[in-house]
Write a protein that binds this DNA or RNA. Structure first.
Lengths: 123, 123
DNA sequence: TCGATGGGTGACATCAGTGTGAAGGTCAAC
DNA sequence: GTTGACCTTCACACTGATGTCACCCATCGA
């Protein structure tokens, strides 16, 4: 598919798709006329990238961990350096912290909204 | 306490503490000599702010939702506008999405690391 | 009293993620 | 064959969160 379709299907500005490619987060073939040509799986990939960006990971890290998250695992096994493992462990721990933080604040907001609603009903 | 102590206790650069104050995320009194003087509770506040920033929320939003998260709730009740409620609901939902995204990817990394370890032990 | 340390402001730099626009090529449809 | 939609690259600019540096004042201990 070409970039326009990918853009609409992922609700992502064309500009950003090119940016993600520049950052090597997604890849594309080229049609004879130079247009980018994406495979189907890139749709999910873009959504995943956006999710990770949204959650505060920088492109640098995303680029590192992406290959471990969706490709056929075994293919990548032999290439995993201790360094990479360390990075993954660090990121995994940071993610756990973030989940905890988000969960706590999510709960606080929920509680607050509940209280507000009770208050309104009571008044 | 003065800014240096707050900085070490929160492991946050002094520069950022001043920035957070500029963005009205934290407040300080001033000593006669002009030095900032923080109350004890600011320590937790800073940590909470950093957690939220880390998780991708902009200062603008944090500023809005903070009062609802830790102050004595009832005091703020009367001032909650429908607008504010809408913002809170929106953020709460976005947080839920982020939690989901993080959880999924956290699990993927965990699985991957497990596989790597099995592979190493097997080889 | 001097020097180290810590505090204050202000300005400029950086980096990532975006926005936006110019200038031009491709192609389908009318 | 020209228009209009879609694509290309290049480049400049902004924002938000930080780093860094310059310059000056305050406090304290030797």
């Amino acid at each position: 598919m070409r970039i326009g379709e990918l853009s609409t299907r992922t609700r992502t500005p064309v500009r950003l798709l090119r940016y993600y490619e520049e950052q090597e987060l997604i890849a594309s073939d080229r049609l004879p006329n130079g247009y980018r040509d994406y495979e189907e799986y890139v749709v999910d990939r873009v959504l995943q990238v956006r999710g990770l960006l949204d959650v505060g990971l920088p492109t640098r890290i995303i680029k590192q961990i992406l290959p471990c998250l969706n490709s056929p695992r075994t293919i990548h096994m032999p290439y995993v350096t201790p360094d990479m493992v360390a990075t993954l462990e660090r990121e995994r721990d940071r993610m756990a912290e973030k989940i905890e933080c988000l969960t706590k604040n999510h709960q606080a907001i929920t509680d607050y909204l509940d209280a507000v609603r009770r208050n309104i009903r009571a008044s």
